[in-house]
């Protein structure tokens, strides 16, 4: 598994731990009828599990298993800087979203920034992966 995939997958596992923990705390608080400050974390629970765990895991695995090169004559993954930028902006977005759950006008205003970073992340990732999605050439197929 290449280095960036290991970063994506391990970070996704951390979000799985944290997202399940918040989810467990929310279910517990619902059971005892508590409607306090913990419910501010509901959007964080959803985003960390949907984007931090599921999407990030898929991004890490796709980076690993998709055809490596954009062109058959090269063996290197193209535009890896874009994939790293995608990793960075995705995780910055999820951390900014968690900050936005805090009390106060300033923190609430962070939510659009989190959304913009998430959008950038998927754009970077799509730009990286797009040229790698291609047919296997006859020569490559025969050499398998």
């Amino acid at each position: 598994m290449p280095l960036l995939s290991r970063w994506f997958v391990r970070t996704s596992l951390i979000y799985l731990c944290l997202g399940f923990l918040i989810g467990g705390a929310l279910l517990w608080s619902r059971a005892i009828g508590h409607t306090g400050v913990i419910w501010r974390l509901l959007p964080v629970h959803v985003a960390w599990l949907l984007f931090g765990w599921m999407m990030q895991l898929a991004m890490g695995v796709a980076y690993w298993i998709m055809p490596k090169s954009a062109a058959p004559e090269t063996a290197e993954r193209p535009l890896t800087e874009l994939a790293w930028a995608s990793y960075a902006s995705l995780n910055l977005s999820l951390l900014v979203l968690a900050l936005s759950a805090a009390e106060g006008h300033f923190f609430g205003a962070l939510r659009p920034a989190s959304g913009a970073l998430l959008g950038l992340s998927v754009l970077f990732y799509a730009a990286h992966l797009w040229p790698r999605i291609r047919a296997v050439t006859q020569a490559q197929g025969a050499s398998r």
Partner: peptide, 15 residues
């Protein structure tokens, strides 16, 4: 209530 609390713990531990 008890079932919900046990359910929360089981799922967190599984994860």
């Amino acid at each position: 209530t008890a079932l919900m609390i046990v359910s929360a713990i089981l799922q967190v531990v599984a994860g």
